[in-house]
Write a protein that binds this DNA or RNA. Sequence first.
DNA 1: CTGTGGATTTGCT
DNA 2: GCAAATCCACAGG
Length: 207
Amino acid sequence: MPGRLLPRAFFHHPPQQVAPLLLGKLLVHRTPAGVLAGRIVEAEAYLGPHHDPPDPAAHAHRGPTPRNRVLFGPPGHAYVYSIYGRYFCMNISCEAEGLAGCVLLRALEPVAGQAAMAAHRGLPADAPAPLLTGGPGRLCLALQICRPSHNGLDLTSPRSPLQVRDDGARVPPYRVTPRIGIRHAVDWPLRFTVAGHPCVSGPRGRS
DNA sequence: CTGTGGATTTGCT
DNA sequence: GCAAATCCACAGG
């Protein structure tokens, strides 16, 4: 397994602070069939309901529900939810227990298990990387992350099949933009993208 | 290249 | 009932 497991303290901060630090880190999924891993190149922060002003785009903004309860638990856990009935998206809980900030992982650069990722996505083995993991729904399909199996997993446990690791790569130069695909707070600068990376989602990897 | 609509979970009004 | 942190297929220019 490449690199060092990120400790819980890494996530014990507000999401707008954690999100840019996640750029360049590895999301690693150990499966019975092999390791699937990608480097994070795009992430969005969603603020908890304690924040002033409240973040109307966050799932947690109306308080805990059966779906979002892991956001209100300790930091460093996976929050996986289904969207539009077809796809899954993955977040990492941040801040102290009771504070429901999180970071949505929106795009990865494939690092290990590319052929398996392509198969999971229903694409030929030599499909271009952006089609494998460029987008929040795509990366969950490629890495086989779904609800309920992965929802609530502790990403900082050495025994967890799903981890975030640091292989020593520096945080790359990045841009800050408004978040994608939301209808509220559309101008809040909470999206962090690796500058010019082809796997960043949106038209032509919109910066 | 652009735009449109379908698939069908979850939770709130 | 409907809106939502999406992706894909397909139509038209």
